[in-house]
Design a protein around this nucleic acid. Structure first.
Lengths: 206, 206
DNA sequence: GTCTATACTTTGATAGAC
DNA sequence: GTCTATCAAAGTATAGAC
């Protein structure tokens, strides 16, 4: 019963099962090289798994693997967001800390690790409908979760949703700029803007 | 909105020379399918050019072509931005119109045409240094040009730059979300946020 | 300069031995 | 379930006829 592995889905053992290692390695490679830019053989090598294992665990091939990686990465990042928000005394601080953490991660990873699915999302938006839907589900889940936090903090559902979309857009766009420019300035600026906007919205809602 | 052009620069005939058609076709394909997702044979076909012509005009192969497409697309989009700003009576209206035009283009192209280089930028940021530099130059040119408009409107250089980065990040991130969700809501929201922020900044600067 | 043919590599995917 | 061998197709790139 009380196994160590975090959750159900049989999926996220850090070093245990081959399947988990494949998903994990794919997530890292997709994030940096994109979907078409990552080969299945490359994934097998990075995961330390034989090539055949990919098709053993993912009979649907690259597309099935891609969809699962997108959803899994989305859940992980959502969990990271929730953790940051729960740890903060208020929503403004939570937002500030989350952006600060994103900037720190960018620096630490030489501007490689930003949004786990943005690169794939832009690649598949007009070329692969199943994967596009997967990215849409992830973004929707993030927007809904963030909206909930803002509603809890006193905003109306509508302004909460609008504000959350605006902040997420700011973060995603800042990731694009920061990775290209190799500077955290865009993320820092977007974070400051987000903090100011949330603070203002909360004040007006009082 | 973001269509062709007829101009100088010594070589951008819409239908004239083979080289121009190759760059043009590549821009459209890179934007939709990404860099690695677009093949040179595909480009030749789309451009109505023989395969050998690509290597005739771009001896450096795909990378040289990619770099030129990034810079050329960046110039085109900058020109589009300048045109929108010059046509508007004030900077606030200009920003509003630009976001509105972006949303309209998204709708008209079935959410395919957004930022001309974002997909490539995320793909090459950690994998191809020459192309990453090309995207960085483009983003920098956009930020500088936008900052100039804001400074002209009365903002300090520092707040102008910060505001421009924030708006560009909002636009880029909104493009990611809008293409994935197949909805202009993110671009609409980001536009409204940008307009409100510029208006507020101008008021404070008075 | 235009265009075709081809070399070489890598891709996603499958079959089958163990 | 693990792993290797191999396939057909597509990728980039080159050579050379016209």
């Amino acid at each position: 019963m009380a196994r160590d592995s975090t959750d159900s889905r049989g999926g996220r053992g850090t070093n245990k099962d081959t399947r988990g290692r494949i998903v994990d390695a794919s997530g890292g490679l997709f994030r940096r090289n994109g979907y078409t830019g990552t080969g299945l053989k490359q994934i097998a090598t990075a995961a330390g798994a034989p090539f055949g294992s990919i098709y053993h665990f993912f009979p649907g091939g690259k597309e099935q693997l891609g969809a699962e990686v997108i959803r899994w990465s989305g859940e992980m990042y959502l969990r990271l967001f929730e953790t940051a928000m729960d740890a903060a005394p208020d929503v403004v601080t939570g937002v500030r800390d989350f952006f600060a953490g994103a900037a720190e991660t960018l620096r630490e990873t030489d501007y490689a690790d930003a949004c786990p699915i943005a690169a794939v999302a832009l690649e598949v938006a007009s070329t692969n409908e199943p994967l596009r839907q997967a990215t849409a589900e992830v973004f929707t889940s993030w927007i809904d979760a963030g909206t909930e936090h803002l509603v809890t903090s006193g905003l109306s559902r509508e302004t909460g949703r609008t504000l959350m979309i605006s902040m997420l857009a700011g973060l995603e766009g800042a990731f694009v700029l920061s990775r290209a420019l190799r500077s955290t300035e865009p993320v820092d600026v977007a974070g400051a803007t987000a903090v100011a906007t949330v603070r203002e919205a909360l004040r007006e809602a009082q």
